[in-house]
């Protein structure tokens, strides 16, 4: 989250970035304003020794285990309105997934309003989500600060979102998530998925692409601070 936030800061200076990464160890992330302290069983999370972080973006909890995580940070002017940005990024991911043989589609915006109570981020597809047969394959969230945005999200290689429901206090909706392994009937690697996304991104977003190291990450200890993680 520190690095994604650093990309957002660099985007405010005019840079545009696509970052593809994974988590080691696996981690539970909360949405920026999610009432995690009452929604999830903190004692159990700590007893299980799970890593926990609160994202700078909104939405609900995600268990980051076997997935490709993407982050796009860029000046707002490069992409446009919130909806246009969402659509452009998700359409690029759909194009990448189709290269892998996944019949992914963008859910249209006419679906019912997603419920915003307890449960995993993947429990309910909103309009513009990447789905297969109505089940959510990619969970994304966006934040806008000044003249730049950060959108990041998880592309499930294998599904373990049931853990979020297990850690939820009271009843939680069973996730309607689907993973690439389930769709393709085989194990899908981080390398092949991230390569497909990078190829699709180069095709969608024309310009001079440079592969490289992350920009210098400014010290932002917020994401390692339990007071921030469990602030509500």
């Amino acid at each position: 989250m520190r690095i994604d936030t650093a990309l957002l800061r660099a985007a405010q200076e005019g840079g545009a970035f696509l970052r593809l990464y994974r988590w080691n160890p696996p981690c539970l992330s909360f949405g920026r304003n999610e009432p995690a302290a009452t929604r999830y069983d903190r004692a159990r999370i700590e007893a299980l020794g799970l890593d926990v972080v609160r994202r700078p973006t909104g939405g609900r909890a995600v268990w980051h285990d076997t997935e490709v995580t993407y982050a796009v940070a860029a000046p707002v002017a490069l992409f446009g309105s919130l909806r246009v940005t969402y659509h452009s990024i998700h359409a690029t991911i759909v194009a990448a997934l189709r290269r892998l043989g996944v019949p992914a589609t963008l859910a249209d915006g006419r679906e019912p309003v997603p419920h915003t109570g307890a449960g995993a981020c993947f429990a309910s597809p909103a309009g513009g989500e990447v789905t297969v047969d109505g089940r959510k394959l990619v969970g994304s969230a966006q934040t806008r600060e000044g003249e730049a945005f950060l959108q990041h999200g998880s592309i499930l290689l294998a599904d373990a979102q049931g853990l979020v429901a297990d850690l939820t206090v009271g009843s939680a909706r069973a996730p309607a998530a689907v993973s690439l392994a389930e769709v393709l009937g085989r194990a899908v690697t981080f390398a092949e998925t991230s390569a497909a996304i990078a190829d699709a991104a180069r095709a969608s977003w024309r310009g001079v692409w440079e592969e490289g190291d992350m920009p210098t990450v400014p010290a932002d200890d917020r994401f390692a601070d339990p007071a921030w993680t469990w602030r509500r």
Binding site: G31, R32, N33, G58, P114, A126, A141, T143
Partner: peptide, 11 residues
């Protein structure tokens, strides 16, 4: 302040 909609947080 910030405002959070289902899919975005904005300042």
């Amino acid at each position: 302040g910030t405002i959070e909609a289902v899919k975005a947080v904005s300042e």
